[in-house]
Nucleic acid binder design. Structure first.
Lengths: 191, 191
DNA sequence: CCGGTTTTGTAGCAGACACTACATAGCATC
DNA sequence: GATGCTATGTAGTGTCTGCTACAAAACCGG
């Protein structure tokens, strides 16, 4: 029972790479098997289902992502709202994280339609992000700022995804600027 | 050449309903044809491709969405950052708009991977949203606040999609609150 | 070396998919 | 009424999908 688990685990790693490369929609048992160096027959020997296989692989991907985030902003480091937002935004903008963001978006799409295992996985991953943001904020009550921070980052990723990266950067810049929204009906003096 | 165009147009409307109901991934020529009351054969007579068909249908969906947004917040109405954000957030939270948001997310997923026609369509739709936000803000230079507003709304929709609606609401509440982020390193006096 | 369990290959199933070839029905114009 | 164009039905094509039946190989304790 050891060999099976070891090969199964190795397959998960290779399949995670493949999933990051082609996305959830663009994959198939045969393609995943080729990427993992086995046959579809074996994948269904290791896993009961394609869904179970994808769930395990997506969990591996999530673990990698949180590891990379921890590397960029180690746990225990606490920052104010603006510095944390800046740091997190530049972290998720790293080219190495691009496939992760694409897959994250795809998982959220499935979750929005209530599909499983997408929904459960996505909710859990996002809960992890919430905890992460709360742990990195130096505010007394981090709940609301953490929510806003995550909304801005996810929103920025979304704007970037639809081809408006500069808009996303403007949003982050606006959120970081001191007096965020100029007081309503009060025009700034700069022409 | 008139009958063809009329029926083609009617088919687009029915297919838009179907697309909103089941999403891009869950559809097929046969299902679309059934929803439109024709045959797949006819759909490929009206359109050159499945892609062309989807592009036309998605444009129809986008037109409907902007019409609904204009109904909720008529053009010409200008607001400050916080009121506009509140109004827009409650507008996109309407149950009738839920399928639109799911489809919008799905389109963004395709756009993130550079797939066509998703990419072009999504970029154009988002450009429309940017113009819409700029037109509804009463600030002198609406570029940055508009970007932030869109990022928060899209981010909130994303948080909602992954099952964290209350988090999304907290984010909007935080963005609307007067002194958005408590000054960095300065703890509020409330315990 | 033998017998049973674990691991793997081969071949295929039944269904869905986008798309096409071909023929026909309806209609209009001359 | 012949001719030609538009509109539609029938019946497929080849390919891909997740998954399975069956059997052979490999391994391991006795």
């Amino acid at each position: 029972m050891k060999i099976r688990d070891a090969r199964r685990d190795a397959a998960i790693d290779r399949m995670a790479d493949h999933l990051l490369a082609v996305g959830l929609a663009g994959t198939s048992l045969r393609a995943l098997a080729a990427a993992a160096g086995t046959s579809d027959r074996m994948l269904l020997y290791y896993f009961t289902d394609k869904d179970a296989l994808l769930a395990a692989t997506l969990e591996r991907v999530a673990a990698r992502l949180t590891a990379m985030l921890d590397a960029a902003l180690p746990p225990g480091m606490r920052l104010g709202f603006a510095p944390l937002l800046t740091a997190l935004w530049s972290a998720v903008g790293m080219p190495a994280l691009r496939p992760y963001m694409q897959l994250w978006l795809e998982l959220a799409t499935g979750a929005a339609r209530g599909r499983e295992p997408d929904r459960t996985l996505a909710t859990g991953i996002m809960a992890g992000f919430v905890a992460w943001a709360g742990d990195h904020l130096d505010t007394t009550d981090p709940a609301r700022p953490a929510a806003l921070l995550l909304a801005i980052v996810e929103g920025g990723l979304f704007l970037d995804a639809v081809g408006h990266r500069s808009l996303a950067e403007a949003a982050v810049a606006a959120a970081v600027a001191p007096a965020l929204p100029p007081a309503p009906h009060a025009h700034t003096s700069e022409p």
